[in-house]
């Protein structure tokens, strides 16, 4: 697993990543048929989300707080905000001249 942008968050990132990955593996192969009724699917999706929360919720909150702190410290929050506002690439692109 790769490093975090801040060395102090890397240990939390590793714990979070391995927790997420084992949940994700199961998430990718839903134990319900594609033809299932929408309400059953919503119910199943809700259970999956709760399962993540129960297994990884705590370390996710810790890791997220650590990264958010590091993002602020490096001034990256402004860069992220700017990108969200400008977002020039979400517009249809004009044909090249």
């Amino acid at each position: 697993m790769s490093q975090s942008l801040s060395p102090e968050c890397t240990p939390l990132k590793k714990v979070y990543d391995s927790c997420f990955n084992s949940w994700f593996e199961g998430y990718l192969e839903p134990a319900i048929a594609a033809s299932t009724k929408p309400e059953q699917r919503t119910e199943y999706a809700k259970r999956k989300a709760e399962e993540f929360q129960a297994n990884c919720g705590k370390v996710w909150e810790q890791y997220k707080a650590c990264v958010q702190g590091a993002v602020k410290e490096k001034g990256l929050d402004q860069l992220l905000e700017q990108a969200r506002e400008e977002n020039p690439l979400m517009e249809p692109t004009p044909p090249s001249k």
């Binding site: 790769s2 490093q3 975090s4 942008l5 968050c9 990132k13 979070y16 997420f20 994700f24 998430y27 699917r41 919503t42 199943y44 999706a45 999956k48 989300a49 993540f52 996710w60 890791y63 997220k64 990264v67 958010q68 993002v71 992220l80």
Partner: peptide, 18 residues
């Protein structure tokens, strides 16, 4: 060339996507 990689947000949507 990838020096770091972090998840900054992650949400399960009501329709079941991530």
């Amino acid at each position: 060339h990838v020096l770091s990689c972090d998840v900054i947000s992650r949400d399960c949507t009501p329709s079941g996507t991530l």
